[in-house]
Design a protein around this nucleic acid. Structure first.
Lengths: 251, 251
DNA sequence: GGAATTTGTACTCTAACCTAGACAAATATA
DNA sequence: TATATTTGTCTAGGTTAGAGTACAAATTCC
């Protein structure tokens, strides 16, 4: 079931279960209906269900039906947009970072544009994977202009947050723009995040600027949606015309 | 190429092109390298490229290479998190709404939990698709407690924003929580959004509460990432410890 | 002009995937 | 207890996708 209709259905059902669309202990639609919904034969649906069963996400009982089974399955981390990880470590859970790649190369056009560099400028590129309690949940690719990247060492990246390294570099990080989309997992990130190629990922890109509007860092992050989710609270302001972000009181 | 390795590669490359990973007019990796990257044969890569070419996203020239071709291709809309669509219509572009489903049903466990209802409570469920200049970009499923849903008519949903309808119902919408993830397109939403099953979608869920903390509306939205992107500006606050959302000055 | 690169085309073989149907076995329901 | 529902098992057959290879044709680069 490397890549096939059965796998599509498997992935869709897995997302639905993880997303609470089907509640714990609840019955899934019967195989015949799932087959109709996806326009495939029952045999194909069965292969998808078999994969889910093997993963322990569902239980099938002949004559009765198919049921969601989430006993000890962890819920995704809910991260605030503004500050991603500060409170995680405070909660006593341990995130570890693995550095997969590090080097200097010519900026691709898209990166050069984002950072406001010349087309042939050199940038430091690093690829890191972050894991929570041993379970990888994010794949981070960062681009930093060469001059700034040289202010810290490769080994620093594996142990310290990049933003704190940039702070020490003497540049004043003032503002950032970020945008969130969705992407399919390519083989390389799929391997790094321990998922299958073609899974859905949250794609976040962020560019950080200093006071003078110079680009300091460009980040392309991919998150496993079953382990990481972006959360935000909104409050209506007095006029009632707009919704504005409500800042949480967590440290 | 309904669902296959070739299709995975096609989708991945399409995302990369739309996401600016390969710049306009730039050359893609040669077929041999793409094949190696994805661990498939060159024939398979060629089928993916053929699909991209048919869509006009690339141009292939024998002996020269394969090139990105984004002439009149529209860029995705960048929406702010707090208020999604207010400024869109102000820009003169027209969004249209199509009501795909409307009715009252028993709340699923997940929905009941989100809204703080009893397990067997009835809710109004509606499914809408929103399009910009005729191109669909979002698939919205909303759940509203029955008593509140009865305060407006089915026809209202096709013409007015739901939040304004809820305003008129006499309930004071005070705060909301929303979270963003990613999901694969199921056949039904794929058809509604004019994409292929298995494409990556941004999944946003939002629950709106009134002053007393009662759930008023639960929204499950799916967005095409090539047409819609969530954007946010961040500013560092004085202490330097946190990043906080910077409110834009657009009306 | 010549060599190297890159896309285009053609072919075979194999394996995996999917459909369709029928029936059995377990369970739930009236 | 009888009936309907639902998962489990099996078979047969057809289609498609993919790997691998080889060579042709166009382009680029020296």
């Amino acid at each position: 079931m490397e890549s096939s209709k059965a796998r599509q259905i498997y992935l869709v059902l897995r997302d639905r279960i993880a997303g609470g669309h089907y509640a714990d202990k609840a019955a899934l639609p019967v195989e015949q209906d799932l087959a109709a919904e996806h326009g495939v034969s029952r045999a194909t649906v069965r292969r998808a269900l078999a994969a889910l069963e093997e993963e322990g996400l569902i239980t099938r009982r002949q004559g009765a039906g198919t049921f969601v089974s989430l006993d000890g399955k962890p819920r995704p981390i809910a991260a605030d947009f503004s500050d991603a990880l500060a409170h995680l470590t405070a909660m006593g859970r341990t995130t570890t970072v693995q550095l997969l790649a590090f080097g200097y190369e010519e900026a691709s056009p898209a990166i050069a544009d984002a950072l406001g560099l010349q087309r042939n400028a050199m940038v430091q590129r690093s690829v890191r994977v972050r894991a929570l309690d041993g379970a990888p949940f994010s794949h981070l690719t960062t681009f930093v202009p060469e001059a700034i990247g040289r202010t810290y060492a490769e080994a620093d990246l594996a142990s310290k947050p990049l933003l704190s390294l940039l702070d020490r570099s003497g540049h004043v990080l003032a503002r950032a723009t970020q945008s969130v989309g969705a992407q399919l997992a390519t083989p390389d990130v799929a391997a790094a995040l321990d998922i299958e190629t073609g899974s859905a990922l949250i794609a976040l890109t962020r560019t950080v600027f200093d006071q003078d509007g110079r680009g300091i860092e460009h980040l392309a992050a991919l998150y496993r949606p079953d382990r990481y989710v972006f959360r935000m609270d909104l409050q209506r302001d007095r006029s009632g015309a707009r919704w504005s972000p409500a800042l949480r009181n967590e440290t």
